[in-house]
Amino acid sequence: MNTLTRFAAAGLALALIQPAHAGLEDLLKQGEKILQEQTGTRSSGTQVPSGLDTATLAKGLKEALRVGGERAIEQLANRGGYANHADVRIPLPGVLNSVAGLMRDYGLESQVDAFEASMNSAAEQAIGVATPVFVDTLEQMTLDDAKRIYSDGDTAATEYFEEKTRAELSTRLTPLVEQAMGRAGVTQAYQLLVEQAEVQIPLFKGMSPNLGNHVTDAALDGLFLRLAQEERKIRENPAARTTDLLRDVFGR
């Protein structure tokens, strides 16, 4: 077996074990959650200040989400907002990401880099669509929702937001991502990369996933990660409470 064939077989093996690995990760996450519940290690969130009425609390929580959302979207929509940050950078889709190093070794480095750059650029151009969805969701939050979220964990508001908005954001974001990918040359770069990868490594044939769905899902993962970070800052750091309402509700 020659070197190229061995690498191709290794790439295929990685692709085949991905589902099993994902299943193991799910089991580990479930076990961690159960352990946290049993040992009381789950974050307790923020204590409701004495004398604070529920209506003011709800306004403050909505303000926190509005401010956190604006900050998160602004960071990601900037040039390099995804591409220049490892925790949100969008990787190659599916099996291609598992063997990106192999493709670079076989002379596809420029194609891989161009594809990654244009894919992240498309997400940066499209993510602004989240702003009106955030605003609409804030208007629908009830007083009971707000009181529960306030004291239920340091990222409880983000979790609520993701549950309520992810499906709609995906629907709105996907066509914008696809349009941005067309303008940025993502589709062309992807086709070129896949075609050349299939020539070099025939086992890649038929393994290319839906690119629009991949970029949209990864872009939303990055958005909710950034929102969770901003929520934690507001709950934990007085300097992040940049309005009077935030200071009244979360402390000065």
Rank of each mutant, 00 (worst) to 15 (best):
R166D: 07
R148H: 12
P19W: 06
P202S: 11
T5A: 06
N237P: 10
V186M: 10
F204I: 15
G128T: 12
G68M: 01
R66Y: 05
N210E: 13
M207R: 14
A130Y: 03
E37M: 13
A189H: 10
Y82I: 02
A9V: 14
S50H: 04
R241A: 05
Q179F: 08
H214K: 03
T5R: 06
Q188P: 08
R71L: 05
A240Q: 09
D105E: 15
M119V: 13
A13T: 14
A126K: 03
D53L: 03
F161R: 00
V177C: 02
F134C: 00
S121P: 07
L27H: 08
T243I: 09
Q36R: 12
A77V: 03
V133S: 04
Q18Y: 13
E63D: 04
L57M: 06
D26I: 15
E236M: 11
T41L: 11
N210R: 11
L225G: 01
L138T: 05
N2I: 09
I127A: 02
Y190A: 10
A156W: 03
K33R: 14
T142W: 02
L176K: 10
V48H: 00
A58M: 04
S98K: 15
G31V: 13
R79I: 04
V186I: 09
L192M: 15
G251Y: 11
G69Y: 00
L203C: 12
G80T: 01
A72L: 00
F134K: 00
S43P: 13
Q200M: 12
T174L: 06
L173N: 02
M103C: 10
A126N: 05
T174V: 08
G185Q: 04
G107N: 09
M181N: 08
G68N: 01
E236V: 09
E230F: 02
Y160F: 07
N213H: 08
V88D: 00
G153N: 04
R247Q: 15
P175A: 01
M119D: 12
H85A: 02
V135F: 04
D144R: 07
G182L: 07
A77W: 02
I149L: 09
L14M: 14
R89T: 12
R148D: 15
N120R: 07
G206Y: 11
G45F: 01
N120V: 12
R232A: 09
V129W: 00
L102Q: 08
T46P: 06
A10M: 14
V186C: 10
I127F: 03
Q75S: 02
V67K: 00
V133T: 10
S151F: 11
T3N: 05
E195S: 13
Y190I: 05
L173D: 03
T41I: 10
A77M: 00
Q36H: 12
S121D: 11
A189K: 08
E195W: 15
A86C: 02
F224M: 02
G212P: 09
G11Q: 10
D221V: 07
A55M: 04
E163A: 12
R6M: 09
G45T: 04
G80P: 02
Q38Y: 11
R71Q: 06
D217I: 06
A239C: 07
F161K: 00
E63N: 01
A117G: 11
R79N: 04
Q140T: 09
A15S: 13
K147C: 09
